[in-house]
Amino acid sequence: MNTPRRPHLKSIPSTTDQPRPAEPGPASDSRRAPRNVGRKAVPSALRSDQQQGDGRYPVAWLHITAPPDWRAVPTATSKCLCGRDRSAVGRRRVLALIADHEAHKTACPLRTPQEGATAA
């Protein structure tokens, strides 16, 4: 029987017992700074705020969680920068907290001008 002979696809380099010295890399152009390979540019976190608003900012937050299932229990929290922090669980209590949050808009010391501040 004759077995088919395969041609050599690749030549195997000869190995030596002695280590070879490292070869220097390509000469760099001294006018350029070395490039950081693999790094991407990241915007600095210290940039000035580029948003030009009208001076308004949020003071109070109302967060309501009402799952789509009518059997689930809704929850709500009402927070304000003046220190007000209230929460409610259940339909009736959430509805009452929503009404209380709306009423707090007129009574909040951060939203209504103080009597002494306008007199000065």
Rank of each mutant, 00 (worst) to 15 (best):
P4F: 08
P4G: 04
R5N: 06
P7A: 10
P7R: 14
H8T: 13
L9V: 05
L9A: 08
K10T: 13
S11L: 15
S11K: 15
I12C: 06
P13M: 02
P13Q: 04
T16Q: 14
T16E: 15
T16N: 13
D17H: 11
Q18V: 05
P19L: 09
R20A: 12
P21G: 06
A22F: 14
E23Q: 14
P24Q: 10
P26Q: 14
A27W: 12
A27Y: 14
S28N: 10
D29P: 03
D29Q: 03
S30Y: 07
S30K: 11
S30W: 07
R32P: 00
R32D: 07
A33Y: 05
A33T: 08
A33R: 11
A33K: 10
P34T: 07
R35H: 06
R35V: 09
N36R: 14
N36V: 05
N36M: 05
N36W: 06
V37F: 02
V37G: 01
G38D: 04
G38L: 03
V42R: 11
V42Y: 12
P43G: 03
S44L: 09
A45T: 15
L46H: 15
L46P: 02
D49Y: 08
Q50P: 06
Q50D: 11
Q51T: 06
Q51G: 04
D54G: 07
G55E: 01
G55Y: 00
R56Q: 10
Y57A: 07
P58F: 01
P58N: 03
P58L: 02
P58G: 03
V59N: 00
V59L: 02
V59Q: 02
A60D: 04
W61K: 02
T65Q: 04
P67W: 02
P68N: 06
R71P: 01
A72L: 05
V73P: 01
V73G: 00
V73S: 01
P74V: 00
P74L: 00
T75P: 00
